[in-house]
Amino acid sequence: MSLAALPLLRLGRSRQAWLALSGCSGLALASALFQRRHAAVHGADRALDLYASIAVPLLVYALVAAALGHDGLARSGRSLVRLGARPARAAWTTVLVAMLASGLVCGVLGAATAACAHGSGDPPVVRDALETLAFGALAGAAYASYFLVGAALVASFWGRALLLLVDWMLGSTDGIGALLTPRAHLRNLLGGDAPLDTTPWQSLVMLALLAVIFATWSARRAARARL
């Protein structure tokens, strides 16, 4: 718990994180309210398209940056490691805090967006909101671990920024490269195009696998890094 205080306080006190949260939430909810006002038949689908393609990646990008104190994954816990905290434990704590915070925020925002934008052609509102809550939470956690790979590779913001760009370029396609990005699987889960004709269930499993693999790889790399 002592180690979790550092990324938690960073998240709570980061102005950029709060700005990103209000901006991305405002965008997703404004889109949802627009669909509702125009009584769109598939309002939730349209609003969630914006949520998945813009709000989730940008929001998680900002949350991860805040949890790391805008530094690399290994260096973000250096002040505690110098006091005797084990590097692996410090890295895992930061990874888990970033994933949990991102999952929570993206899940709640997804559920709120689905509920606000609900149209007559969408699935029942409660079921739709709960499914979006789960998919959004999983996608948020997967995105966080994905960006943490960049932060474990390069200490500056370029590591995370490069992976954001890769997600945008590869994840927007339906080729084989899209299978490695959270974007393609979240889109598939929310009713969009599937990468390589995968089923939503397969995307759900892939998203969970990506979250675990990316988190493990980045934490292990950060634990071995010299400060």
């Binding site: 550092l6 306080l9 960073r10």
Partner: peptide, 12 residues
């Protein structure tokens, strides 16, 4: 160890 530029957790 205290380095030239001390490394302290800025939020505490």
């Amino acid at each position: 160890y205290v380095a030239h530029v001390p490394c302290l957790p800025e939020v505490f």
